[in-house]
């Protein structure tokens, strides 16, 4: 055997799976035969993180394997065309990623539509544990992620947006399998979401700013928390949150926090190791599963 090309498919795929991602992209440039094999074969790569920036002159892609922190990843492509991105994403679709980030430059023209088109034509959904993207654009991209693998979703503020903007298309977002199956959701407080609070009860951890919430909804959230085995953290911001109103339903608050938080403690059903702590300050309310031993001595844990 005189050349790597004479290798049969199984060892060839084995070799490619053991190559770092940059080497795979370089191997594609060596000859037609190898390029065709890489493009036509389903194999996994060592990629862990990928960051796609949609810029005015095309796409830039930064990737890294699990060792270095993602910010120090290698830039594989700068200002590349959608065809180049298609090739990279085709290789990525077989990887089990930890992190997938998409950022957009305000001067980009149709880049998000191009990305959506590429993802639409992939043979399998992208497999990542965490997906981070700016604003409502997430709706175009999110359906192309494997809903069973996706655990965390973060929606960042758009860099040219303004505080208090509505998250457009939230109704569709709430119906996606990816939203329903995820365990953590962080929506930046720049966005105001118009949705029922109960839509978010299935998350382990969530941060969201709702347009408006009623006192009944806060009680429902507290009840969900004390009867749940999965809820760990719920940070809520909304109009009309008022300590006096909260006192009516949660009782007299405990004041011991250096920043002046009002706090309430509640037992969690069938759980002695943890309690629910509710913090209220600066117009936001936080529900947190807390180790029982961390409850201040003077605080009353309500039933």
């Amino acid at each position: 055997m005189s050349s790597l090309l004479e290798m049969t498919d199984v060892p060839m795929r084995n070799i490619l799976e053991k190559c770092d991602f940059k080497s795979v992209l370089t191997l594609r440039k060596v000859c037609h035969s190898l390029r065709n094999f890489i493009d036509d074969t389903c194999f996994k790569t060592d990629l862990d993180n990928i960051c796609i920036t949609i810029g005015p002159n095309g796409f830039s892609v930064t990737c890294s394997n699990p060792d270095p922190f993602w910010l120090h990843g290698i830039e594989f492509a700068k200002d590349c065309t959608s065809n180049d991105l298609k090739i990279i994403l085709k290789l990525v679709q077989n990887s089990q990623l930890s992190y997938f980030l998409v950022t957009t430059n305000p001067d980009n023209v149709g880049g998000l539509d191009d990305l959506e088109e590429i993802l639409k034509n992939q043979t399998r959904p992208l497999h990542t544990e965490r997906f981070v993207m700016e604003g409502s654009g997430i709706l175009k991209i999110l359906p192309y992620f494997d809903s069973k693998a996706l655990k965390k979703i973060s929606i960042l503020p758009i860099n040219y947006g303004t505080n208090g903007q509505n998250l457009v298309g939230i109704e569709k977002f709430l119906e996606l399998e990816q939203f329903k199956n995820a365990m953590e959701l962080y929506i930046n407080n720049w966005f105001v979401v118009r949705a029922d609070l109960s839509k978010f009860f299935h998350f382990q951890r969530v941060r969201v700013k709702l347009h408006e919430t009623s006192l009944e909804e806060h009680v429902a959230l507290k009840e969900a928390f004390v009867t749940s085995t999965h809820m760990k953290f719920f940070e809520l911001h909304s109009h009309g949150l008022d300590e006096n109103k909260l006192e009516q339903v949660f009782g007299t608050p405990f004041h011991d926090h250096p920043l002046g938080y009002s706090q309430w403690f509640f037992e969690i059903q069938n759980c002695k190791e943890h309690v629910l702590r509710i913090d209220f300050a600066f117009g936001g309310i936080g529900f947190r599963k807390l180790e029982t031993k961390k409850v201040p001595q003077d605080a009353v844990v309500q039933r």
Binding site: P11, N14, I15, E17, K18, C19, S23, T26
Partner: peptide, 12 residues
Amino acid sequence: LNVSCKKVANMA
């Protein structure tokens, strides 16, 4: 197969 493929992959 694993170790020999790894050796070839490392060469790249």
